[in-house]
């Protein structure tokens, strides 16, 4: 039994997912719905903002590349793809998954694409956190010279 996830979470996941993994999982579903473009894939930039001192007023840090597109499955839902980097194929797949996740395919796609991606990305993150943890300093006090 899988928990239902929000559109915000699956789109966020698709944006950050490794392109090769997404492609592999998508191809494995065997799905190839017909669709029409509402906005063909385009590469652009987003200005990344941050806060002064981490918590203060915003400032512009620099841009990052983003690819976006919008499509409509024939007789179905509208899907949007917003993904990091310059990858029109990935944006297209993300938009297709987004469209299908809004319909009756949601559960099977969640199991076939979303959850494996989530597992892969969580494992990669945990792996880095484990390596970081191994470099944490354990302080100990040397014997003092008083006695």
């Amino acid at each position: 039994m899988t928990d239902e996830i929000t559109r915000k979470s699956w789109m966020s996941l698709l944006a950050k997912a490794p392109a090769a993994s997404l492609e592999k999982l998508w191809v494995a579903t065997g799905l190839s719905p017909d669709y029409g473009w509402l906005r063909a894939p385009e590469i652009g930039a987003t200005m990344v903002r941050a806060r002064m001192g981490g918590t203060g007023a915003p400032f512009n840090l620099g841009e990052m590349t983003v690819t976006r597109c919008s499509l409509q499955i024939d007789g179905g839902a509208v899907g949007h793809g917003y993904v990091q980097g310059r990858d029109k194929a990935k944006a297209t797949t993300a938009a297709l998954v987004d469209a299908l996740m809004q319909g009756e395919m949601a559960q099977s796609l969640q199991a076939a694409v979303i959850e494996p991606l989530m597992a892969e990305m969580t494992a990669a993150k945990t792996d880095r956190a484990a390596k970081a943890a191994a470099t944490k300093v354990d302080f100990f006090t040397m014997a003092r010279g008083e006695d």
Binding site: E42, I43, G44, A45, T46, M47, V48, R49, A50, R51, G54, T55, P58, N60, L61, E63, T65, V66, R68, K125, R128, A129, K131, A132, T135
Partner: peptide
């Protein structure tokens, strides 16, 4: 590059710290 917009300010307190 066309500018798609600006992000929300990033939350560095939530950073997954390598260091």
């Amino acid at each position: 590059l066309p500018r798609f917009g600006a992000s929300e300010p990033v939350d560095t307190a939530a950073m997954a710290c390598d260091r």
